[in-house]
Write a protein that binds this DNA or RNA. Structure first.
Lengths: 196, 196
DNA sequence: GTCTATAGGTAGATAGAC
DNA sequence: GTCTATCTACCTATAGAC
């Protein structure tokens, strides 16, 4: 049930990874409880019993989905921040990376992390919380710098929670077939929070 | 399965109402899918079979919980707006009423409305959407007035979605035993959005 | 690694007595 | 209106063959 795993060569984990990605989509669309192990199996062309060679329980699959969602987003954000040339660029990266991870192609995993928290057992929560805190720490650093430079308001802890709430909620109303691209949406939302 | 019901004398619906209130708490704490009809029955001192005299299906209970959550919040907001003396007071009322409904005592119903949407059947959704739109229309009116007066930024449709997302997310981190009261939190969050 | 077959449990809902 | 009893269906997980 350990969340942090030793990395292996990708070929070795292909089957397991395909399962996690398929599970992310099913859990997002139907919810964890309504998704049966039979659903998961047939999504990867497998009988339900065979799943339990790769995972001990259905919940272990949920935890793997969530861990994937938050770690891959954290990695993308860290990379974007390292490339940013200005504080303003860093701020923009926060919004851009988060929304692309949440609303972009094949990115159901982060959404599962946000909305299926109640289905995670108490024993598995701490590991996921560590991963989430690591992500939020990146946010906090950038917001603190931005507040010191006068780009945003001062109460940065509340600001971080407020902004993340706004971004999370976009999954409820944003439609990709509309006029606004994800990057445009990120820019608009950043604009709302900048002190002029 | 109709959401909008003819009002009846309260005594007539006491049992039904107690059930809806108990269900709101269970659905919020455990999730709709994990809550069994046996859980619901024992929460009101009833056998599970007896529930089906009051409701045809378990889902009908979920819809009743959600309808209660959003209509009672809408009524409270409408009353608060009618009493407000200034535009600034109206803005404050948006935040205050929403957070008290979400974080206050015995107010699990609105939280269920926000987080169990996926468990609602397609046939029941339209009725709930009408109720939700009615609530959001109140927000939109006040934000439009505030933008015209220069109190908040101009993109009020995005602003409404952004603010509601921030407020919804408070259930994930706000703790009543902390330093901040719900009313204080409402004031702080309003402060973040005002143009100075 | 994946299959078939199934154990063992619990879910939502119904029927009829009171 | 509520109870008891129960139906039918489906769930996660396991066992052993291949």
């Amino acid at each position: 049930m350990s969340v942090v795993e030793t990395p292996r060569p990708p070929e070795e984990n292909n089957r397991r990874m395909a399962l996690v990605r398929a599970a992310a989509v099913l859990f997002r669309d139907q919810g964890y409880e309504r998704t049966t192990v039979r659903d998961l199996g047939s999504a990867v062309g497998m009988q339900s019993g065979s799943l339990f060679y790769h995972f001990r329980t259905k919940e272990e699959i949920l935890v793997a989905v969530m861990a994937l969602g938050i770690t891959s987003t954290t990695e993308q954000l860290a990379a974007a921040l390292a490339e940013a040339n200005s504080l303003r660029d860093k701020l923009a990266a926060l919004f851009r990376v988060h929304l692309n991870s949440l609303l972009g192609d094949n990115q159901a995993a982060l959404e599962v992390m946000l909305y299926e928290w109640r289905s995670v057992s108490e024993t598995a929560k701490p590991g996921l919380i560590v991963l989430r805190d690591r992500y939020e720490a990146l946010w906090q650093q950038v917001l603190d710098e931005a507040a010191a430079a006068g780009l945003v308001k001062q109460d940065t802890r509340l600001l971080r929670r407020t902004l993340l709430g706004s971004l999370h909620w976009t999954v409820q109303w944003y439609r990709r077939d509309g006029e606004l691209s994800v990057d445009d949406l990120a820019r608009h939302m950043l604009q709302l929070v900048l002190t002029e």
